[in-house]
Design a protein around this nucleic acid. Sequence first.
RNA 1: GUGGGUGUAGCUCAGCUGGUUAGAGCACCAGAUUGUGGCUCUGGGGGCCGGGGGUUCGAAUCCCUCUUCUCGCACCA
Length: 415
Amino acid sequence: MYQIPRGTRDFLPEQAARFRRLEEIAVALASQYGYGELRTPIFEYTELFARSVGESTDIVEKEMYTFQDRGERSLTLRPEGTAGVVRAFVENKLYNGPLPAKYYYFGPMFRYEKPQAGRYRQLWQFGVELFGAAGPRADVEVIALGWQYFQELGIKATLVLNSIGCRQCREEYKKALVAYLQGRKTCKLCADRLERNPLRVLDCKEESCQRELEEAPRISQYLCPQCREHFERVKSGLSALSIPFTQDDRLVRGLDYYNRTTFEYKTTELGSQDALGGGGRYDGLVELIGGPAVPAVGLALGIDRTELMDPPALRREPRRRGVWLVTMDPVTDEAIALAHPLRRQGVYLGYDLEGRSFKAQFKQADRNNCRWSLIIGPDDLSQGQAMLRDMETGEQRPLALENLVELVSQLEGVK
RNA sequence: GUGGGUGUAGCUCAGCUGGUUAGAGCACCAGAUUGUGGCUCUGGGGGCCGGGGGUUCGAAUCCCUCUUCUCGCACCA
């Protein structure tokens, strides 16, 4: 028997509907904030992710689905959404349009990781990217959008905030960090990171490295005056909007392109998978990808985990709706022909396709949660009428065949 | 990256120390009710007991091995 690939899943109708709702709410919210949809390919040239996400990140080092196509180009299934959006922004020269420019996306991402609850190899993200605004108000707007999403869904999330500074102050910090870590025992990978990208040591998974880091210098102590000012204004901006947050100067996040503001939405309800979403500012990335120096800030929210939180906004009471046609040979085709026009009126109409007994047909009506059963059997036809049965009360009454479609389509609960 | 658990019907699981044709509940289909759902009763279909190898007269059960799914920790969405 064929099996679904590890870390992927089928969405059966009920869960697919929940996901669709999560997407609708996200799209409505993004539109309301002035973001337009930007769809990019599911795969890009590998080089794009290596450059933008960062060569020495976990994602690029060990989590990418990379393959060669028949033209021997190296392609990679997108592990995150920002790189593709930035590529499209640059390639389509969108920086020549009015700025700031705002885009959102919703779709699957791919990471080769060990699956567990709330962690998948094909995962869904909703993200927004805001280009061309360098000031802290842009950071605040993006953070507020994500915050509102969880609020609307009724999910309890907390916001964690940090600033990792700009290129200049990070250089200072790097030096201090390297000086501190030199001579201390780190894992093999971190010894290498220490040379290539010392900041990555901060979120090393090895316990020994984490222990060594407890006393390490903190980035917050090395922010330059401009970065410090920016950070302060982001914080006061959030406070002005009554968005609560905590500060955590260990929050560096797993991608290289961030600078200044980084943030994460967290939960305590999913165990180890506590990050519902996150983002930050990435001022140098557009330039790195070949565009002009356009500042940017964005976020990405994990939809799988959001759904796992069982958002109250998704809970709906099942209600009976629609009409089930009950009929019998030899008049089955005639009855279907009479009822079928209801579908053109937007009515939910169902009927048995296998010539089952009356009893079985009523059972199907019930199981399909129909509000009404419309009975058009040989006896009814010969009397020029149909019978209408209310599946909630069991009451039944005759209906004239002449204006059947009109009568039925005006009943309550048929759509 | 690391540590556990698990695999028997579509689903949830039972099957004690190896012993005939492998069971239950739910679900499905049918009948009781030859034109009436939700309740009840009766019957029915459906299993290479995850794969391979071994021990044995005999393996779902014991041993080895591969594998699947899943959960925790770390990190991330």
